[in-house]
Design a protein around this nucleic acid. Structure first.
Lengths: 177, 177
DNA sequence: GTCTTCATGTAAGCCGTTACATGATTAA
DNA sequence: TTAATCATGTAACGGCTTACATGAAGAC
């Protein structure tokens, strides 16, 4: 069975920028990748352990007072696994859009109105979040990948804009009573 | 642990339109929901069995020659489970976009060029597929939910159009050599 | 006669989420 | 002193994919 676990690549990619701790990887993801790539809380540490066992990362335990910190750094083997993934064809996720599934089963205007309204509220909230991330990013000093990270964020923003427009049109056209 | 399995709702929703067989559900999904909701091959039959055991569907075995057919129909209990899901708040999937994850780790123009080019080819292929589904749908006689199903398909098409534009711009702006 | 489609399933095993657990440090 | 954040994990379980399996009917 072909392993499909991509958490490891996200971790190896972050470690490519330099050594860090599991906690730091977790919070970095929360700050920066969360709108296109999210890991649940407990996946980072076990995955780091596995990678260490495989020789893809090295760990070093530090103590700050009584507080344990485990710094991880990527090895040559880790780098080549990362590159192999990076250069391999990108698979597409199996589509699972619960909103569109519900839409598919809509039978009357009232249902559709509720569905669109609910979705619109969420989309507008997310839009505001993305916008504030954009603000934060724009204010940062230049760093090597700033341009590309802004680009991908703005891609997300324009997708959301499109969805919001579509939802509003739908509400007007089909759910007007 | 809260069950998250939504395959059952897709099945119950399809059965709301009238009795069918597992095979028919499978192929209907392949024809109509596959761009926003896909099930893998082997999930339909076991799920139908479970639903039957729970009293959410009824099964009736027919024979056409030696060929067995199991027709399933939705029960009252099934209908109310479906409605409960339909009226419950729509959860959002955890985001997992492998393309954007790779983009996040890009370090030079050559890598980005390859990444965008690959994605563009796939997006254009998918666009063609959607367009031909749209053609087929447009030619069908009117049926109750035709308008709404065309609407959601066109939403997918406009999302793809946006992505294609974005990819082309990216190739010109950032990956030009 | 052979290939495709119809028609229905089982089993293994990875994957991912949720809930649970622990303890130190720092800010209010 | 209490809450939030830093910091690191384990266990259980449901879910999902892949591979495997079987056989009839119809098309070419």
């Amino acid at each position: 069975m072909k392993p499909t676990n991509k958490t490891r690549y996200a971790i190896l990619g972050i470690l490519s920028d330099g050594p860090t701790t599991g906690y730091e990887i977790k919070s970095l993801m929360g700050r920066s990748t969360s709108y296109f790539w999210r890991e649940s809380d407990s996946t980072i540490y076990p995955t780091l352990k596995i990678l260490a066992k495989e020789g893809k990362v090295l760990s070093e335990t530090l103590y700050v007072g009584k507080k344990k910190k485990e710094m991880f750094s990527i090895t040559k083997a880790g780098q080549s696994e990362f590159k192999a993934w990076f250069n391999s064809p990108t698979g597409s996720e199996t589509p699972r859009n619960e909103f569109l599934l519900k839409l598919f089963f809509v039978t009357n205007q009232e249902e559709m109105s509720r569905l669109f309204q609910e979705r619109l509220e969420k989309a507008e909230k997310t839009y505001q979040e993305y916008k504030s991330i954009e603000d934060r990013l724009e204010k940062l000093d230049d760093y090597p990948r700033k341009a590309i990270r802004l680009l991908s964020l703005r891609y997300g923003i324009s997708q959301l804009t499109l969805e919001i427009t579509w939802l509003k049109e739908g509400i007007l056209k089909y759910a007007h009573r």
